[in-house]
Design a protein around this nucleic acid. Sequence first.
DNA 1: ACAGAAATATTGACAGTGTCAAGATGGCGA
DNA 2: TCGCCATCTTGACACTGTCAATATTTCTGT
Lengths: 187, 187
Amino acid sequence: MKKKPPKNYHHGDLRGALIKAGREILEKDGAAALTLRACARKAGVSHAAPQHHFPTAADLLAEIAATGYEDFHQALDDGAAKEEAAAAKLQAMGRSYVTFAKAHPAVYKLMFGAETPPKSEHLQHAMSAAWNQLTSAVTAAYGPDEAQLRAVSTWSLVHGFAMLAINHRLPPSLDQARALETITSRL
Amino acid sequence: MKKKPPKNYHHGDLRGALIKAGREILEKDGAAALTLRACARKAGVSHAAPQHHFPTAADLLAEIAATGYEDFHQALDDGAAKEEAAAAKLQAMGRSYVTFAKAHPAVYKLMFGAETPPKSEHLQHAMSAAWNQLTSAVTAAYGPDEAQLRAVSTWSLVHGFAMLAINHRLPPSLDQARALETITSRL
DNA sequence: ACAGAAATATTGACAGTGTCAAGATGGCGA
DNA sequence: TCGCCATCTTGACACTGTCAATATTTCTGT
């Protein structure tokens, strides 16, 4: 009977509440509003309470990003499940990828930005899970030959398009839906 | 006696000095250190002086990003100039693109992030210039047919790889130089 | 069962930030 | 020459993240 996860203390589950609050703030008001004190307010605790659960603000961001990766992973799986053939699965994943990024731009940017500590265990795990997911799909579609290089190309193409789109770096005249079709057809 | 900084109450070119200072801070200490007050200190003026040249902090960031686009444009031109054939020029641009992003990650992220006001005239111009540069190279290499869609694919691929690389989202086991070759060969 | 230990939360402080409002300064045209 | 006015300074305000000290609740050993 050593220690168990802090579940029944003062707040109950402040750690989880802070992550959830942060996620909601991020979705609703964007990255600029995502603040330690704002999370604390939303969770109904004092401004320094998070300190005991997240040594620094970046640690909370990392945890929020990790939950983003989990949703992301699920979205890609759901997309792939709609298709039968392996190549079609990969393309469907590409579409789901961009759809997710456009639906949750702030979370997506946090996930793929570098303002998060690379030490986070949870984040590291979520990242490599997403990576394995892609590599598996690539291998299923095209065989194990140079799978890593192919996976990097695939990821780069889709990630680049998603980033350019959500950061408004694509020409306004571009038909993004058609561009997405062109891109996924190249996977 | 040297306590007499030549009473430049009026700086002369504070606007330009602030942009330059910001660029240097960005290159040397990263985005987190890029602060209005830090730029003012580096330019030797008081903390509120920038107010008259940049209504808000984001306006200064936009101007710094615009200078980044200018260097970027030049780097791509220099890369392309080393090759003769149009297709080889395009691939050389791709290599220069990634090289620039890796050499100036903070500036690059600022250029392609969305934390900058889309109203900036200078920034808008620099962005569309870069876009035209790419579209021209694509057209020269593959003809005007669907040039825009092809340009978007090209940009997405290279931008995605650059972003993943500088944000440490690529597997450590990956040979990035080889991956870059694979990617440019797909342009 | 109960006191002490450990975990959790609060309060208050500090340095740093962007922005605003008022005043000081000095270049430049009438 | 004189006065305008863009420019710069000073000072303030409401924020932010982080730290230290204190208070409060839960856990644990006996």
